[in-house]
Nucleic acid binder design. Structure first.
Length: 561
RNA sequence: GCGCCCGUAGCUCAGCCCGGAUAGAGCGCCGGACUACGAAUCCGUAGGCCGCAGGUUCGAAUCCUGCCGGGCGCACCA
């Protein structure tokens, strides 16, 4: 694990804490009850690089005017490294700190030294976390909505891993239950249709065109053999073939999307191993599951849910909830410190019963986090693209990925907080302009790569670190370094809150700072080799941070575009 | 009716967890910048009672309460 970074903010905090202690020693403060020092980067540049509100927070306890307190703190500040260019008292009592430009330079060395690990954190060290996502039923291909879940889940997993967690990615395969039977029935009907049999295709069957494809495939492999079997057997057979086929397609789509799972967990396996039955009988003997109206009910209302829920219907079939309970018990038994489920937002009503079942199982429901991903509105040139699944008209993820590319799709899925509905415009996603942030960010990486190529042509080795970078002093250069110094904090926030869009926004900011710099200054100067080396050092750092950030999003960092 | 989420610039959205000083970005509008490392870029102008009303606080987009508006759920479906 990399050692703690430069963390300018941390240093300021320490200086202030020391100043408080020193002032108390000198008898300047009546009370030593000091609150935690909060340091933040002010929104307004004129307020310095960092500021603290400590004097205001202390005022009531110390019974002193905030500005007076600020004055005492500043007087006791020690700055052996000459990190501070200026310190001022402002407004009602803020202390503003202005960092001297050269104090930022060590950040560059840190980035180059840590390289791909720059921004990594150890906040999750020693903790195991499971991220379960997509988990789409193997009754049809993935559509764009699943794509968003995949992008979010995968990126959250990347970020947590970068934050030191031991992360496992899992896909729960609902390969059991009524929807699988329905799939088998749908395929078998289409199969019979292929042999000229008159059928009526029920509304509750799967309407999509892919069902016909599956039927044709079975006809190719097995001819009319299924017509000889009895209907139940044939349906079951179709169900198995179709599920396996669809699941293989889902895996392929996800691979094309750059998403790989550590484990595919079968729902059927929970039944086969008896885990569902064990759960039911254990809870029955504890009285947590009871019988009513011929069905078995779980007393989730004892654990905060609004009402009890059925686990076995009066026809003897288990509900989804039953296997979900067994599944989540099993997750916790595997020893994860945290379990994260990524669901479609329409399932939010399911959370209380899931947590209730964990509580009943003796687990801590707070260790389960559910990320609810809102829907995707697919647009083309601003006009909605029809996505009614009922009619089987959904837009497959695969189509979107092959049209706009993996990078654009993944990036756009992560340009919003997952709790906001997302408009995904196919035409926009392909545009190479500022409306499309993917290229804006990737362009930075490619530009810097190109600068290095040009440097090579002039006989400069771009990877050669300069002896010092004291010539890197332009305001835009210092701004870039400041922006990069924020990256570790952004990663930590994204990890703690499980919000990949924070990385996305950060990258757009950094990209903007770079493009501005690039337009104003030449990296490869004509007459100043030292400056050229210093600037190469700077932009190569930018390139690394961009690459690291894009990696967390699952987006590539191209050398050329 | 109940529950969850949302309401910030003309549009699409960050910021809210953990309260700070003059609320940000992209697009769009208007006006500029290529004989120089990729103009897929940059620079500038205009644009806001942060849904409304109270409360807490020295200080509220941020916390609390109530309302209004929108989305999604409220199955012996998944």
């Amino acid at each position: 694990m990399p050692k703690k970074g430069i963390q300018m903010k941390q240093k300021i905090k320490e200086r202030v804490s020391q100043a408080l202690a020193a002032a108390y020693e000198d008898g300047e403060f009546p009370s030593s009850a000091f609150p935690a020092v909060a340091v933040e980067a002010p929104k307004v540049e004129a307020h310095g690089d960092f500021s603290t509100n400590i004097s205001m927070v202390m005022a009531s306890v110390q019974k002193m005017a905030p500005r007076k307190i600020a004055e005492i703190i500043i007087r006791h500040l020690d700055d052996p490294e000459h990190m501070l260019e200026n310190t001022e008292i402002a407004g009602p009592g803020f202390i503003n700190f202005f960092i001297s430009p050269s104090a930022w330079h060590p950040v560059l060395h840190e980035i180059h030294e840590k390289d791909a690990a720059y921004g990594a954190s150890d906040m999750g060290k020693g903790k195991r976390v499971q991220v379960e996502f997509v988990s789409s039923n193997p009754t049809g291909p993935l559509h764009v909505g699943h794509g968003r879940g995949a992008a979010v889940g995968d990126s959250v997993a990347n970020i947590l891993s970068f934050c030191g967690y031991d992360v496992q990615r899992e896909y729960y395969v609902n390969d059991s239950g009524r929807q699988i039977k329905t799939l088998g029935r749908s395929v078998f009907l289409r199969y019979q249709e292929l042999f000229g049999k008159e059928i009526t295709f029920p509304e509750d069957c799967y309407q999509g065109e892919y069902v016909r494809d599956l039927a044709m495939k079975i006809r190719e492999d097995e001819g009319d053999a299924l017509l000889q079997k009895d209907e139940d057997q044939a349906t079951l057979h179709c169900a198995h073939m179709a599920t396996a086929d669809i699941l293989a397609g889902i895996k392929e789509d996800l691979e094309d999307f750059g998403v790989l799972f550590d484990r595919w967990y079968s729902e059927q396996g929970l039944y086969d191993s008896g885990k569902v039955d064990q759960m039911i009988s254990a809870f029955r003997s504890q009285g947590i599951i009871y019988e009513k109206d011929g069905a078995l009910w779980f007393k989730t209302s004892d654990y905060g849910d609004e009402k009890d829920r059925v686990v076995v219907k009066n026809d003897g079939e288990t509900t989804y909830f039953a296997s979900d309970i067994a599944y989540h018990q099993e997750k916790f038994e595997r020893g994860f410190d945290r379990v994260i489920d990524v669901w479609g937002a329409d399932h939010h009503g399911y959370i209380p019963r899931m947590k209730a079942s964990l509580a009943a199982s003796g687990h801590n429901p707070d260790q389960l986090d559910v990320i609810l991903v809102k829907m995707v509105n697919l647009l083309r040139d601003g006009q909605p693209v029809s996505m009614s699944t009922r009619a089987g008209e959904f837009v497959p993820l695969q189509d979107v990925v092959s049209e706009v590319g993996r990078d654009a799709a993944r990036f756009i899925f992560l340009t919003r907080h997952y709790e906001s509905p997302l408009d995904f415009d196919l035409e926009l996603a392909k545009k190479r302009t500022n409306d499309n942030p993917v290229f804006y960010v990737q362009y930075v990486h490619a530009r810097i790569a190109n600068i290095q190529v040009k440097g090579h042509e002039r006989g400069i080795d771009p990877s050669e670190a300069p002896s010092d970078v004291s010539m890197v002093t332009a305001p835009e250069e210092i701004e870039l370094i400041k922006a990069m110094s924020r990256y570790p904090e952004v990663v930590e926030a994204a990890g703690a809150l499980m919000e990949p869009h924070r990385i996305t926004y950060y990258l757009m900011d950094l990209a903007s700072a770079f493009h501005a710099y690039y337009n104003k200054h030449r990296v490869l100067t004509d007459d100043d080799p030292e400056l050229t080396r210093g600037r190469l050092h700077l932009v190569r750092a930018v390139q690394k941070v961009i690459r690291n950030g894009l990696t967390l999003l699952g987006v590539s960092a191209p050398e050329k575009m």
